[in-house]
């Protein structure tokens, strides 16, 4: 089809528009498969338990220029006493070759459920964080990181 051609009918234009619309629909579904992998990982750890929101402060940059070194800080609200503390925190990514990034085990001796590290991200994707409290409650947080240069080498 020639864009400026006078023969471009309304029907053709509509057809093209629908193709573009379909492509736009398809794009988020491509990462959907990886979202499933992360969901499967969480299920492997905790079964079908309910994931509540809140309590987690997941600190990642909005835009990461270099996917090889992306700082990630997780802080979970908790008094960190023997009776009430954060047991574990798992960090996942839904657009990397492997979903897992890091798993922390905290103890009340930490005083504060907070930890920072640096991760590799292959592409723009979501970071998903699940925290397990000592009473068995689960919390989840999610953040998107836009990656300019992927960190997978290759």
């Amino acid at each position: 089809m020639v864009w400026n051609s006078i023969e471009t009918t309304r029907r053709e234009a509509l057809g093209l528009a629908s193709i573009l619309g379909f492509a736009a629909l398809l794009a988020p579904r491509m990462s959907f498969a990886d979202e499933q992998t992360v969901a499967a990982e969480i299920k492997k750890l905790y079964g079908d338990k309910k994931l509540e929101s809140g309590k987690i402060k997941l600190d990642v940059p909005e835009i990461a220029e270099n996917g090889l070194v992306v700082p990630v800080n997780v802080e979970v609200e908790s008094p960190m006493t023997d009776a009430d503390y954060v047991k574990a925190v798992h960090v996942f990514a839904d657009g990397n070759p492997l979903p897992g990034i890091v798993s922390y085990k905290f103890t009340p001796a930490c005083g504060k459920a907070s930890a920072s590290t640096r991760m590799r991200l292959a592409q723009t994707q979501n970071i998903i964080c699940v925290a397990e409290m000592s009473n068995g409650n689960l919390h989840m947080a999610k953040a998107n990181v836009k990656v300019t240069i992927g960190g997978c080498g290759g």
Partner: peptide, 10 residues
Amino acid sequence: FEADWNPAIS
């Protein structure tokens, strides 16, 4: 404190 690292760690 413990951290289990995956290959995604820099």
